[in-house]
Nucleic acid binder design. Structure first.
Lengths: 197, 197
DNA sequence: CCAGAACCATACCACACGGTACGAAACCGT
DNA sequence: ACGGTTTCGTACCGTGTGGTATGGTTCTGG
């Protein structure tokens, strides 16, 4: 009962996600957000709590929607295919025509004022979680599927560094083609012959 | 003539550099800056213009001091040594004990409000300049020094992506050892045998 | 020893920030 | 039709932002 809200929370969250994605947590003001979401300040607070909670919900939506490809990519065999799926998936997600450039997890709050330190740490935590999942995936690979002498943890960190670096490049203006060539260049170092072994 | 200033501009700039490095352009308030520099607001404006000019001067100082190793690294032979020198140099610069984590060029303003767009673009421009210098260095390498089938432009973009990704990792808490292993993992893909060819 | 010049410190400005109080409007169950 | 409930819109709050006016202070050149 009571007056029904005049906006769709999910759609509004999608708009908020875009603003955070483009401008980062601190760079997105409440005015930017409410304007993009098409709702007023009090409506935002009633529906989403406050700016930080809104950001966390946008982050959840980002992970489940934009990064949804990850789960399937990780399942690919052999391990090299999983890494290739991840990297090409990141490249595409960071260079979408209808989405902001780069990655919300990197754009969100890399360096910020002390007030946003909790947000920064949360993002670092989530990046670490992805890296841990990848390390686990690589550790489960049969011997011989990884490049000779490569440690799964090191390899996972290397792949994530590359992904995050591509996010920086995308935000700097690099297009999809450029990013895909970065992935291809990296994968040339991990020949199919190794995977076939 | 006139009253002499009671602070050393170069030292004050160094303190400002540290604050920008740690908190980024927007995340560093004038209060943060003046407190770290040990000077008052009007002194800052008299000596450095305004916040944006101060940032640009800090950026120049960063390039000439912290990134000073680049010129020598690029001169190394063969090309693989130049890339190795660059990457290890970045890894060390991003994980210094007495300096903020990460890279000022990446921390400074990756995503920001519209007001700081000029700063963001300037940083993207400078990152591109480094990439262009590296591409030129690789293009000048004798045939056979690069991995087979690798395009110098793609290779340069790949190396820069890795460096910028390490900057993200460093800001996330990765230590020097972790970063160096990322570099080593990347360099394993570019065997010495290729360089010796 | 004084005039001019540059610097320092305080106190201030307009404005944008994140967040909220409050009254009017719109709905549901009875 | 009406009471209770929830939303919406406006107008506001305290605080912090980047930036500056002003007056006292400390130096140099003559």
């Amino acid at each position: 009962m009571g007056r029904p809200r005049e906006f769709c929370p999910d759609q509004a969250l999608g708009q908020a996600l875009e603003v955070f994605w483009r401008q980062g947590y601190e760079g997105a003001s409440l005015s930017d957000l409410t304007e993009a979401m098409g709702i007023t300040r009090p409506s935002l607070y009633a529906a989403f709590g406050n700016k930080e909670e809104l950001f966390r919900k946008a982050l959840d939506r980002y992970e489940s929607h934009v990064m949804g490809f990850m789960a399937e990519a990780m399942r690919q065999e052999p391990a090299r295919e999983a890494v290739a799926g991840l990297l090409y998936g990141f490249a595409d997600a960071q260079s979408g025509q209808d989405t902001p450039a780069g990655c919300l997890g990197v754009n969100g709050a890399l360096a910020c004022s002390e007030a946003s330190e909790p947000v920064r740490q949360e993002l670092a935590r989530r990046r670490g979680a992805v890296e841990a999942r990848l390390a686990e995936r690589l550790r489960a690979a049969p011997a011989g599927q990884l490049p000779p002498g490569a440690d799964p943890d090191d390899l996972a960190r290397y792949v994530m560094a590359l992904a995050q670096g591509m996010a920086v490049q995308a935000k700097s203006g690099a297009g999809r083609e450029a990013l895909r060539r970065v992935v291809a260049t990296a994968l040339q170092a991990w020949p199919d012959s190794v995977a076939a072994a």
